[in-house]
Simulated scan of single mutants.
Amino acid sequence: MKAFIIDRYKSRDGLRAADMPVPELRDDEVLVEIHAAGVNPIDAKIKDGEFKLILPYRLPLILGNDLAGVVVKVGSRVQRFTPGDEVYARPDKDRIGTFAEFIAVNEGDLAAKPESLTMEEAASLPMVVLTAWQALVERANVRPGQKVLIHAGSGGVGTAAIQLAKYLGATVATTTSTANIDLVRSLGADVIVDYKQEDFETVLHDYDVVLDPLGGDTLEKSLRVLRPGGTVIGISGPPDPDFANELGASWFLRLAMTLLSYRIRKQARRRRVNYSFLFMKASGDQLRKITPLIDEGAIRPVVDRTFPFESTREALAYVESGRTKGKVIVTMR
């Protein structure tokens, strides 16, 4: 099958087209013919080796973390799906590889594709809606009337998280550039901070939850807009000891993550707020909970550009440029 792979991290060749074998099915897996795949910043980070300590992939590696497609074969223990079913998913972290014609996905990671969406639209959602759900519903337990700040509101995670937070009944603030104000307002943002014109920490106060996909200075400033007891959930790091425990990391990685997050956790304690690192997980069960919200129109996909499969390298380069609004998609069929 045709695929786009990396042979080694930080290679000068980067992502390249290759012929790879069609994956062999395990008993609990489903073989999916991929029709469209989402392109995410994590793809670039994996390519550059940023996760090689916590995600020790065997190279060569097919990249890609979002898919929509059609089931063509199922393992002997699969009960939920049959050939011909239209599905979407974020494969588990150790079974990625959606920049390809086929992929084997654990049954538990798949969900039926939303009926209201095209394949391209469906492929844009799994990673970002799961991230938003795990941050706002599972981790923060956002309730009606709370105040939630979503950074980078025009990005992939931001566009999904604004809509989900609004659905949950929160007052939603977001940061974005001047050019994207109309977009984030159309998604439901109540308070919009144009980061080119003003600093969010000077205008926002007493927030219950902050979702931060940016890290760095933005993460530190976010601590200062929270009410006492509030929480910043970071998805760009630094990883914290809870994540190390969840990962079952070695003592070395546990120590490294403790040290990496020491400063931000100390600052959070001083301000009587919380810092939590989120590395989203694949979950077909959660996608099945989210799918009705999509079909009802509470969450809609935001697709910036669509590239043909043979232009996957260009699609990833466009994502790396940081200029995207919502998601970028590659289409196989």
Rank of each mutant, 00 (worst) to 15 (best):
R8W: 00
K10Q: 14
D13I: 13
D13P: 07
G14Y: 10
A17E: 15
P23K: 12
D28W: 03
N40Y: 13
A44K: 07
E50P: 02
K52G: 00
Y57G: 09
V71T: 08
K73W: 01
Q79A: 12
E86L: 05
V87E: 01
P91K: 14
G97I: 10
A100V: 07
A104F: 03
N106T: 04
N106A: 12
D109Y: 02
K113L: 10
E121Q: 14
E121A: 05
P126H: 07
P126K: 07
A135C: 06
L136D: 05
R139K: 15
R139A: 15
R143G: 03
H151T: 12
T159W: 01
Q163S: 12
G169C: 07
T171K: 15
V172E: 02
V184L: 02
L187F: 03
L187G: 03
A189D: 01
I192N: 01
L214F: 09
D217G: 03
R224E: 15
R224M: 13
G230N: 11
T231A: 00
V232C: 03
I235E: 07
G237N: 03
F243E: 04
L247D: 04
W251L: 12
L253Q: 12
L260G: 10
I264Q: 01
Q267D: 10
R272P: 01
V273Y: 08
N274P: 00
G284P: 06
G284W: 06
Q286C: 04
R288F: 00
L293N: 02
D295N: 15
E296T: 11
I299A: 05
P301K: 06
K325F: 02
I329H: 05
T331Q: 11
M332L: 14
